[in-house]
Amino acid sequence: MASGDWKETAFLAGAVLIFLTFDVTLVLFAMGWFKPKNHFPVDGRTVLVTGASQGMGRAAVKLLAQKGANVVIVSRNASKMEAVVEEMKRTAMKPQIQRFHYISADLAKNEESIRVVEEVTQWNNGEPPDIVWTIAGAAHPSLFIDVDAEVLREQMDTNYWTAAYLGHAILRSWLKPFSKLSESERKAAGNAPIPRQFIMTSSVAAFAGLAGYAPYAPTKAAMRCLADCLRSELNLYNGARRGTNSSVVATAPVADVKIRCVFPGCILSPGFENESRLKHPITKILEDADIQQTEEEAAKASIKELEGGAYFATTQIIGSAMRAGSLQGSPRNSLIVDTLFGWLANLLWLFIAPDMERKAWKYGKTHGVTKGEPGK
């Protein structure tokens, strides 16, 4: 065989092999062989969600009901929660099996968070909820010195402490050592439990400080830091479950626990109109390019990210870029993608950050610090 014939034959054989491999891969993918793992399974599990009487929380629990979850919602408005429970019952995947419940509570108080965990556990046949997702929160945008000091505390209470207190209560329940569980608690936990999950809802405001968000953004940044701290701590408990001797395993909880955090952007929720009235004009200018999402879009994107395994879950491309550019020591959702995306985001910030600084400076030079509309 001539040299040219050999090369041509090898080329054709390689092309056929690639073609067959591609075809087989497509067939196996269609058969579900490469179906990605769902890191947020809720079918048949009990999920506790705060702030679910309206906004993204309400949209999220409806989706969870459609996916087969038993859902408990917590808010201060009982009448609104009653309506949400009825909606979940109508749209549930398994209406004859799934259960729904609501609890009225002010989670800015630690004792209320403890009560909620106890009540849910009792309602759930002695077993704590499998997943806790804190969505409760509200924004009070304003220049820092234009609000009373009480507003700063209220923002921290509403956004940070409602999540931190509930996280403290549920983790104390979940992380109880196996050796200290009663027989009924061990039985309720099962033999091979799926990891439990504590999810907080922060905001893309945690990734970049903007003029007019000083009362709000730090509360969300604190939540992001709490997620990192808790994730690191949980390595102790999750590692103990894989100990090499019984005395170590006895100190571990019955199931792994995961910490995750969601970072939505601008959501067209009931509070959006009020927030817009409070915003200083420079805040509106600086966030002019933000993508606005409906409650349903934000909830759907959040759940999709959680199902995909994201530790820091974002709901739109701008938020993803901000997340990738500010990860520092936080875990990556994808080592390669987040590293490359982070390099690109940091490069873009070399141009975006100075531009935002100039806009604020220019507005002050032209209009002073007036709250009036630009140019008026």
Rank of each mutant, 00 (worst) to 15 (best):
A205H: 06
I135E: 01
V47Q: 05
I282G: 08
A139V: 04
E112W: 10
G57Q: 09
N124K: 00
P128A: 12
A105L: 08
G68Y: 14
V132N: 02
L166A: 12
L210I: 09
K7G: 01
G44Y: 10
M200I: 05
N333Q: 03
A65E: 03
H280A: 15
A299E: 02
R332F: 08
S202P: 11
D288S: 14
N191P: 02
A149P: 06
V27F: 13
K187L: 15
I131P: 09
K220G: 07
A83C: 01
L17G: 15
V120P: 12
K371E: 07
C229P: 01
P36W: 07
E8P: 01
I267C: 15
V16M: 11
A52H: 00
A78G: 02
A15Y: 15
L268Q: 10
F198R: 01
T158V: 05
S247C: 14
K284E: 14
C266Q: 10
N346E: 11
L107W: 05
A105I: 06
G368F: 13
E112L: 04
R260V: 04
A78S: 13
L234Y: 07
M1I: 06
G137R: 12
F198I: 02
L210P: 05
N124R: 00
N70G: 10
E119V: 10
D288P: 02
I317W: 15
I18N: 11
S184W: 08
R90W: 09
A30L: 12
C266K: 09
K109A: 14
R172I: 01
I291P: 00
V47A: 04
L152E: 06
S113Y: 07
A345W: 01
S330N: 13
L327Q: 06
D43V: 02
V262H: 06
W123H: 13
Q54I: 04
N159T: 06
A10H: 07
A255G: 04
L171G: 15
A164M: 09
D290C: 07
L171Y: 06
A211R: 01
I18P: 05
L268N: 12
E118W: 08
I18W: 14
I199T: 03
R45E: 09
R323M: 15
V47W: 11
L12A: 10
T314Q: 04
N274K: 14
G375D: 13
G68A: 13
A78D: 10
E154V: 01
V262E: 06
G137D: 02
L171E: 04
L286I: 07
L175N: 14
G14K: 06
P193W: 07
F198V: 02
L327I: 14
G308Q: 08
I336K: 07
G51F: 06
M356C: 04
E154R: 08
A299P: 01
R241E: 03
S173A: 11
V47I: 11
L226S: 09
Y213L: 09
E307L: 03
A208E: 02
S75D: 12
H168T: 09
F29Q: 09
E150A: 14
I114S: 06
Q293P: 00
T158R: 00
D130G: 03
Q66P: 00
P129N: 09
S173F: 15
P95W: 13
L48P: 00
T294V: 01
E297K: 12
Q122T: 00
A52V: 09
V120K: 12
E154Q: 13
S203I: 12
R332H: 03
P141L: 15
E86S: 12
L107A: 00
F40N: 00
R242P: 02
T294I: 05
G329D: 14
